[in-house]
């Protein structure tokens, strides 16, 4: 029982660490948005094409954040190692 409690606690810490990549993802997205705003301010007539390029850039840089979220969710709700541990402990 104690081993299982330690394992579950560790899983929660690991999920929190996996979500820390949101920091870097946010920096990347902020950079995309600020550069897009700068170029719109410089060339207001190209605002539409810059905006669509900005959305694509935001979506592509969001991918790593989504991967971190999915890793955290898999570790919390669908972790195969917990089943193995439960089988081992009997």
């Amino acid at each position: 029982m104690r081993e299982l409690a330690i394992a579950i606690g560790m899983i929660h810490i690991a999920a929190a660490i996996a979500l820390l990549n949101g920091l870097l993802t946010t920096f990347g997205q902020a950079r995309v948005a600020s550069q897009a705003i700068e170029s719109i301010a410089r060339q207001p007539e190209a605002a539409d094409s810059i905006r669509s390029a900005m959305f694509i850039g935001l979506a592509l840089s969001e991918t790593s954040g989504i991967y971190g979220l999915l890793i955290a969710i898999i570790m919390l709700f669908a972790n195969p190692l917990v089943d193995i541990l439960v089988n081992l402990l009997g």
């Binding site: 979506a59 969001e62 991918t63 989504i66 991967y67 999915l70 969710i73």
Partner: peptide, 13 residues
């Protein structure tokens, strides 16, 4: 994989 995970992750969150 990246295309599907992006949509899935956003909707799931």
């Amino acid at each position: 994989v990246s295309l599907s995970f992006r949509l899935f992750g956003n909707m799931l969150s």
